[in-house]
Amino acid sequence: MAKRAYPLAKVYGLLEPGPVVLVATARKGQANIMTMSWHTMMEFEPPLLGCVISGRNASFDTLKATRECVVNIPTLALAKQVVGIGNCSGRSVDKFAKYGLTAVPASQVQAPLIAECYASLECRVADTRLVNAYNFFILEVLKAWVDTAVKNPQTLHHRGNGVFAVAGEPVRLRSGMK
């Protein structure tokens, strides 16, 4: 075995939780988008997901105040927009306009869906007990939308420091779960 010590500050890249998503929020008629890769599924029905949003992020304040958002799942086709959105602040930039994305009204929340994304999850904050200590929101998915024309979405997975993996061919293995 040729293992060596690994910097703790880089561990997150080893445990990447899933596809990079674009979180849309809206407050007082102003929509915003942030790039997020810190999320995890927590329950199946109702679907619950947990996510970490930095308290320095404009979306943090909006999500805390409105208690709702849309988690949009982009594919490789939006890679440049995903990175650009993650590298600017919604406090000073209209990210929908700057990155050529289309806001679509949601059915359950005020935040918009992003038309160009493969899937969109309308969410409401279900639990805030971990927000003050860890910036960890627990969201309940109220409505899910998916583009059925996309058969094998090439989602982006952040590995750290500008490195992404792209989901490839699906592999089916026999499962005992029903």
Rank of each mutant, 00 (worst) to 15 (best):
N32K: 07
A119Y: 03
I85H: 05
K80P: 05
T102A: 06
K28S: 15
A31Q: 02
I73F: 09
L101P: 04
L49T: 00
R67A: 05
P19H: 04
P74L: 15
L49D: 03
A103N: 11
H39K: 10
D61W: 04
A119H: 10
R56K: 12
M42N: 15
F44M: 05
E68G: 03
W38G: 02
S59E: 01
I114A: 04
I53L: 00
G84K: 04
P105V: 05
A119Q: 12
T25A: 12
K80I: 08
I33Y: 00
T40M: 15
K64N: 14
V71E: 07
V109W: 04
Q30R: 09
K95D: 09
P47D: 13
M34S: 13
Q81T: 10
V11L: 12
F96R: 13
S37F: 00
T35G: 03
P47Y: 03
A26L: 12
M41I: 13
G13I: 04
A65T: 12
P74H: 08
Y6A: 06
V70F: 12
G55T: 06
R27N: 14
A103H: 02
A26D: 06
Y99Q: 11
T40D: 14
G100E: 13
P46F: 08
L49I: 14
P105S: 10
A115Y: 12
Q110D: 13
A24E: 10
A26E: 06
C51V: 05
N72F: 13
A65W: 05
V71Q: 01
V52G: 07
T25S: 10
R56E: 03
R91P: 08
E16F: 12
K80T: 09
M36D: 05
Q110E: 15
A111L: 08
C51Q: 11
A106P: 08
A5F: 06
P17I: 01
K98T: 13
K80Q: 10
Y12A: 11
H39V: 10
G100Y: 11
C51M: 11
V11I: 14
V20A: 07
V71H: 05
G84I: 02
A31I: 05
V109I: 11
Q110S: 15
V109E: 05
F60Q: 07
M34A: 08
A119E: 03
V93F: 09
L63C: 11
A9D: 14
T62K: 04
A58R: 11
C88S: 14
C51G: 10
S37I: 07
S92E: 09
L78C: 04
Y99P: 02
V21F: 01
A65K: 04
V93N: 07
M41R: 15
